[in-house]
Design a protein around this nucleic acid. Structure first.
Lengths: 368, 368
DNA sequence: CCCGTCTTCTTCATCGATGAAGCACGCACG
DNA sequence: CGTGCGTGCTTCATCGATGAAGAAGACGGG
């Protein structure tokens, strides 16, 4: 039984054994056209015999300056990503492009310790980075820029913020969250709702206590997505003559049904009782629907609920929402990154289309 | 505007600029305790000034023999993985363990070209590998073993097969598929069903034409999971006195609702018409339910349908199934791999528990 | 018969860092 | 005052490969 810590067989060892140069062995594996077929066979046979596993990818990567992997870093780490259908969908899109190109996807670990979080990004062995959903003040972005690797930013921070950070022209992929949010809100207003409420996920990377937040706090969110969706709701509300200061806005932590349920309960406890809930994501809306059911409210007769994303459970729940092309977002981000890696030019910011999807969770405002 | 192809600033450059040794600069970043705080500050300041991004992870990895990432390779590649709730759940479990340990997850790309598929595995820059769901004859396993890295195998091939391939003692994580399958089949038999049918996903890595397969072909599946679940159903059937040769067994390609619907349609067209469908996965069962609805069959009055996995949509569909602890599987695989990397001993094969979950998609056999 | 061009293999330098060991100095202690 | 030891920094070798350039023989053309 071979030792677990056996010294690995190197390319040199194979070369020496066969009496050829190291470069020839290297070529046998990486550039078959550079040597005769017969010698190549001999080399491979010797390699097999010695148990040489082929060129060490790490060493080859160092020399070549390429490792064949792109890194994906998220605001809140992997574990969360796999529980969020939107994140999974994004990764599905990215992998659909990376895979045929032979590129691996390295999921960069997050951490509650800011230092380890940055260290993980700095030490990721990748050819390029996709950075997604960071708050405006997240130092992770600076760390990503510092790597000097090709970089694509998704959703947030916005391009203007990237320019301010000294990285203008960084490829960016996202949607017009503000307009999209205004569209859902407009839909509810068109249905006659005048007592709106909002259920939001986090506003800052470093969480603040969940609860109701005033207009000023809404505009101060350092997550641009949060900020812009709020602003979009407000745009539509103000356009319809609403006093936005009177609209209860709850913000919680993550984008989960639990937070959504808590948020819905909180805003439904305000007076006058809202007739329509604007949720910043479908998962929040999922929780809101649950809370409504718990309160004995009929949807949409007593309460309308709208989401955002059009993610996996939305259709099943009959949820009115705004579709954003999440998978396409992943594909586009990966494609742009691979293009940059290949030296191909990439266009400026990519704003992908959104679309209002009306289902059964919204209806005319109750006459009350 | 700096050139895109600027020669990167190296540790040497910083050292030279400040008139200290390269090792000192290295220490400033990686071993702060090895130099005075003041010098460290100077080094970091100089590094910042020169735009040095910190030690190149690739080079550091080569020297240290560690890169802080574990590879995950799948039978059918990434793109598929993200569309399969079971695979996502597995990854969620793995990342939940890897992340706190500061380890990244490298998703190894698949390919339809067998050569590129092997090359991708051979060139993955990782410290260890998790290999999941390979067929018994898949050369990917040999490639993984050849890497000489710590390795954990999930589900299939089975430990006995690993031993036969010269890698006995390889950590393995999975469930007793045969017993689990026998449990669901037993449940249906207990309900009085005597005309069973099976809807299966692929039997071999290189797909063969979908359709009905006889007993011999069932036992010859090179996917051990497929083979064992079939065998489990058969065990229960034979135990109840069924003539298994008369049971229609459909096998298709992937584990998708589409295949499930096609399979259900195929077996329901046989005579005598089955009263219960055993599906090898919940996704197949999802399709089977759809097909039943299309045929105007009531579930479970006219037709009982059972799945396998207890994955995401199962509860929502009221699907009777066998729960396997997929997330735990991911956690266990990652934990075992990290343990091996840390030099800690790992126990032998891990057989995780399964549990029959009876919901509303199964009921007593129709009297007819 | 000579020269240019291929093919096939070799030599040399290099990718960018870090472990191990070494050296010089300062300080405490007997 | 000599010895012993910890601190702080340096030197040296090395991790395992590949690009660029070069040399030796084969081969074909004029």
């Amino acid at each position: 039984m071979p030792s677990d810590r056996a010294r690995p067989v190197t390319l040199q060892a194979v070369a020496h054994e066969l009496g050829v140069s190291a470069k020839t062995v290297s070529n046998a594996f990486s550039r078959p056209d550079q040597l005769s077929a017969s010698l190549r066979e001999q080399v491979l046979a010797t390699a097999r015999r010695l148990g040489y596993p082929g060129p060490n990818p790490l060493a080859a990567g160092l020399r070549r300056g390429r490792v064949g992997a792109i890194g994906v870093a998220y605001d809140n780490g992997l574990s969360y990503a796999f529980d969020d259908p939107v994140a999974v969908e994004f990764l599905a899109g990215a992998s659909a492009v990376a895979e045929p190109a032979g590129a691996g996807l390295l999921l960069v670990p997050g951490s509650t310790d800011p230092r380890r979080r940055l260290a993980a990004l700095s030490s990721a062995v990748v050819d390029g980075l996709v950075i997604s959903s960071l708050s405006d003040d997240d130092p992770l972005l600076a760390a990503a820029i510092a790597r000097g690797l090709p970089l694509v930013v998704v959703d947030q921070p916005r391009p203007d913020r990237l320019a301010a950070l000294g990285a203008p022209g960084t490829p960016w992929v996202g949607v017009d969250d503000r307009a999209a949010a205004a569209a859902v809100a407009g839909h509810l207003l068109d249905l006659g709702h005048r007592r709106l409420a909002v259920v939001s996920f986090g506003m800052h990377h470093d969480p603040i206590a969940p609860g109701l937040v005033d207009e000023q706090a809404q505009a101060a969110a350092t997550y641009a997505v949060t900020r812009d969706r709020m602003a979009g709701y407000r745009d539509a509300g103000v356009r319809a003559g609403l006093d936005w200061a009177g609209v209860p806005v709850f913000h919680g932590g993550d984008s989960t049904p639990e937070v959504g349920a808590a948020g819905a309960a909180a805003v439904l406890a305000t007076d006058p009782t809202p007739t329509a809930l604007l949720c910043l994501s479908d998962r929040l809306a999922e929780g809101a629907l649950r809370a409504a059911a718990d309160l004995g409210l009929r949807v949409p007769e007593d309460l309308s609920v709208a989401g955002f994303d059009d993610a996996t459970p939305a259709a099943g729940l009959g949820l009115t929402t705004v579709r954003q092309p999440t998978r396409l977002k992943g594909r586009t981000a990966a494609r742009d990154l691979l293009d940059r890696l290949a030296g191909r030019p990439v266009p400026g910011p990519r704003v992908l289309p959104t679309e209002l999807v009306v289902r059964t969770s919204t209806g005319p405002a109750p006459v009350s």
